[in-house]
Write a protein that binds this DNA or RNA. Structure first.
Length: 603
RNA sequence: GCGCCCAUAGCUCAGUUGGAUAGAGCAUCGGCCUUCUAAGCCGAGGGUCCCAGGUUCGAAUCCUGGUGGGCGCGCCA
């Protein structure tokens, strides 16, 4: 439990009066505390069902006895009553606020003490020479959020990317580029995306010929034959590192890399280490030879692999093809070794879509057989796919939504429906910056709000609707809260800094809080640390999204209530409300920060 | 065939280790802007939590068996 939280304080007060026979620790008491269904019942509820067996009494009787016996020297509770099998506890709002608000209002960060655990989070992993589309965005947002969550939880996190810069897709793309293109000049401002279009064109052409050949088209079959021979030749020349083809590879690869760098920068995502498939290709093959010698790997039909009986439906995990070349799996083993050796990591997290669950099970089992103790601390974070209303994204169907298109449509929609109104009042720079922040908030929240095991059907029209449970709603709420502080500041109603220093002074002003909206907001603020901890523990940013939305809804009720207006307030009540708003602003900022979302100053 | 995932309001989804009357957004209908930003707030309607058994004081939640949908299953990544 978090020592400064209300839950902890309630558990501390409740624990001594529980019958010893129940044998509950303070932490267990804290864990069992729940919110009553109706706020009128109380702020916390302690259910007595589990005590019934040990005490051989009915839960309602136990609840009644606990409520009657509750001593409250700290004056934390305003009411403690048994309602059926529950002990319902109402907090003294002023005292509770004095416990919770000062840390948050001061802006002290929520980061937990260092755990000493070094964890690597590998995510994004786009292929060069291919398009970056909305499907990649889910991975990017998820991985980045996990990095941020684990950092707040106190881990030493290494954010890693792993770029696919070798393989058949490159050969296809270069085939088109070298053989089929009249004009090989890329558009200067979008060379990476252009390269992706070449790959898509190549891939489509091959698929079309394939279909036509299947249907008996002799000409198509011949074209297909020649193209396959050519891509195969390109691939072999790449693997042989022939200077001429390597020069083309390097130049085009650079176009993709600059595209990715621009995307990451716009998305405010950073990496500490970027691995390339090209750097683990040869080490992978060496590793295969080494463990084949050791008898860990076996030969099967001319290929090399390992038998992992634990994966019953597919025990053979191939690591080297018949022709002696490497596979994705080969490189993943070499990459894992590189990670272990280069960074001495304690834990390794792979953010990769759910279709690769079997693959990673095999990788981790194999690493264990190879003798890497870290294999136990490797973890695949699977997430479901992003689809479009007409089904899975496929180059062939031409229904891929590219990143640039998403960004462009999101920002121009925001300009037209919202930011246009500020033209002439705000500087163009501020408008652009706010527009980007909000577009990014909409995209990230949309990608993270849904649990990882749910598919996301990407419907642009729906994503442009920014009402309700969306990123911009949260940002708007934050901007409104900020404007309270700004407006109050302008009329000389700022928060007294002395309040952050003295607990007695805080309590003197928070005692004036009494509205239900203030109480709800306080209770919502109190749940921040436990929410971040749970999300980090379970590697689920969606938990944070749900919390952020509830927190903002609670704030908006406070904001909208006539009886809770801050600016017209005076004296202690004004100060108490300013504390609440400051605390909210910082809590929201911390909450959104782990999602990679920021709040514009105004919007 | 084997393995994994999903099924909750018209649509999209939440639902902490099993707990009080199953929630939210969107959509529909009705209210609230001379007072801190209406991308907001309040209210109404809307449910066989896929089905059938089981476990127990108590099941949307756990177990078993089905049904429907998605994904994966040796030389792609």
């Amino acid at each position: 439990m978090h020592p400064g939280s209300l839950v902890a304080a309630v558990a501390r007060a409740l624990h001594p009066v529980l019958p010893a026979a129940a044998g509950l620790t303070e932490d267990e008491v804290a864990a069992s505390l729940a919110a009553p269904p109706d706020p009128a019942l109380g702020d916390f509820a302690f259910p007595c069902f589990k005590l019934a067996k040990a005490l051989r009494k009915g839960p309602p009787q136990i609840a009644a006895e606990i409520a009657a016996g509750l001593a409250d020297p700290a004056g934390l509770f305003s009411r403690a009553v048994a309602t059926g099998p529950y002990v319902n506890l109402s907090l003294d709002l002023g005292r509770a606020a004095a416990l919770v608000l000062p840390r948050l209002a001061s802006g002290e960060p929520a980061r937990r003490p260092a755990t000493g655990v070094r964890v690597m989070v590998e995510f994004s992993q786009p292929n060069t020479h291919k398009a970056f589309h909305v499907g990649h965005m889910r991975n990017l947002c998820l991985g980045d959020s996990l990095v941020r969550l684990l950092r707040v939880a106190g881990d030493d996190v290494v954010a890693a990317n792993y770029l696919g810069d070798v393989g058949a897709h490159i050969a296809k793309c270069l085939w088109w580029y070298l053989d089929r293109l009249h004009d090989r000049t890329p558009p200067a401002d979008r060379r990476g995306e252009w390269l992706g279009e070449l790959y898509a064109a190549a891939s489509n052409q091959l698929d079309t010929w394939e279909d036509q050949a299947q249907a008996g088209d002799v000409a198509a079959a011949s074209e297909l034959q020649q193209a396959k021979a050519r891509t195969s030749e390109i691939l072999h020349r790449l693997e042989a590192r022939e200077p001429e083809i390597m020069a083309v590879w390097q130049e085009t690869r650079e176009w993709s890399l600059e595209e990715f760098a621009e995307i990451y920068q716009w998305c405010d995502v950073g990496f500490d280490r970027v691995f390339f498939e090209s750097e683990v290709d040869e080490p992978g093959l060496k590793l295969v030879a080494e463990f084949l010698d050791k008898g860990v790997f076996v030969v099967s039909n001319g290929a090399v692999g390992v038998v992992n009986d634990e994966v019953k439906h597919m025990p053979f995990f191939m690591l080297r093809k018949q022709d002696g070349t490497s596979l994705y799996s080969t490189k993943d083993l070499a990459l894992a070794r590189l990670k272990f050796e280069e960074y001495r990591i304690d834990r390794s997290v792979y953010v990769v879509d759910v279709r690769q669950s079997d693959h990673f099970r095999h990788v981790f089992l194999t690493l264990k057989k190879m003798g890497f103790y870290q294999a136990e601390r490797c973890q695949h974070v699977p997430y479901e796919m992003v689809e479009l209303p007409d089904g899975p994204m496929a180059g062939r169907k031409g229904n891929v939504v590219l990143f640039r298109s998403l960004r462009q449509q999101m920002t121009s929609h925001l300009r037209k429906t919202w930011f246009q109104q500020f033209e002439g009042q705000w500087s163009p720079e501020e408008i652009d910056a706010a527009e980007r922040t909000v577009a990014l908030g909409a995209i990230k929240y949309g990608m993270l709000n849904r649990d990882v095991n749910q598919k996301i059907v990407f419907d642009l029209a729906a994503w442009l609707n920014l009402d309700g449970n969306t990123g911009p709603y949260l940002q708007y709420t934050g901007a409104r809260a900020g404007s309270i502080l700004r407006e109050c500041g302008e009329v000389g109603k700022a928060l007294d800094p002395a309040l952050l220093a003295s607990e007695a002074a805080v309590q003197a002003v928070t005692a004036s809080l009494q509205e239900p909206q203030e109480r709800e907001l306080l209770l919502a603020l109190d749940r921040l640390p436990q929410t971040l901890a749970a999300a980090a523990e379970q590697l689920r940013p969606s938990i944070v999204c749900t919390y952020a939305f509830e927190l903002c809804r609670t704030f908006n009720r406070f904001y909208n209530a006539d009886n809770c207006r801050v600016k017209p307030s005076e004296g202690p009540l004004l100060q108490a409300r300013l504390l609440l708003v400051h605390a909210f602003v910082h809590a929201l900022r911390e909450t959104l920060a782990v999602l990679g979302i920021s709040v514009p100053r105004r919007m």
